[in-house]
Measured scan of single mutants.
Amino acid sequence: VFVDDHLLEKVLELNAKGEKRLIKTWSRRSTIVPEMVGHTIAVYNGKQHVPVYITENMVGHKLGEFAP
């Protein structure tokens, strides 16, 4: 499973602090992992960042699938 390192670091850091804030990313190719559930990730679609709230059903899919 591929997840960009910088994105995973941000998610794990927020989980350690117990925070839930918006994470901006250009990494549409990253796979959604269970650690991301409950976070809102702003995924770049080529024009703007689209906020995507991550749920359990999204695990295993790519971030780009949810930012048309």
Rank of each mutant, 00 (worst) to 15 (best):
F2G: 07
F2L: 07
F2Y: 12
V3Q: 04
V3F: 03
D4R: 00
D4N: 06
D4I: 01
D5T: 15
D5S: 15
D5K: 15
D5P: 15
D5Q: 15
H6S: 12
H6G: 10
H6M: 14
L7F: 01
L7E: 01
L8M: 13
V11T: 02
V11Y: 01
L12R: 14
E13G: 07
E13W: 09
L14G: 05
L14N: 04
N15C: 03
N15L: 04
A16R: 13
A16N: 10
K17T: 11
K17I: 12
G18F: 05
G18V: 03
E19F: 06
E19Y: 07
E19G: 04
K20P: 02
R21H: 12
R21K: 12
R21N: 10
R21T: 10
R21G: 13
L22S: 06
L22N: 04
L22V: 13
L22K: 06
I23S: 01
I23H: 01
K24S: 08
K24V: 14
K24A: 07
K24T: 10
T25C: 04
W26H: 14
W26Y: 15
S27T: 03
R28A: 05
R28W: 07
R29M: 11
S30Y: 03
T31V: 11
T31G: 12
T31D: 08
T31P: 03
I32N: 00
V33G: 03
P34R: 13
E35K: 05
E35P: 14
M36A: 02
M36G: 00
V37H: 06
V37D: 04
V37W: 07
V37Y: 10
G38N: 09
H39M: 03
T40L: 11
I41Q: 00
A42H: 05
A42T: 03
V43T: 07
V43N: 00
Y44K: 03
Y44A: 04
Y44H: 07
Y44N: 03
N45L: 06
N45G: 05
G46V: 04
K47C: 15
K47D: 08
K47E: 08
Q48V: 13
Q48F: 13
Q48S: 13
V50W: 09
V50D: 10
V50Y: 09
P51H: 05
P51E: 13
Y53P: 11
Y53T: 10
I54A: 03
T55L: 14
N57A: 13
N57K: 13
N57Q: 12
V59N: 06
V59A: 07
V59M: 10
G60V: 02
G60H: 13
G60E: 07
G60W: 15
H61V: 09
K62E: 13
K62H: 11
L63V: 04
G64Q: 10
E65W: 09
E65G: 09
F66L: 08
A67P: 04
P68V: 10
P68M: 11
P68Y: 08
P68G: 10
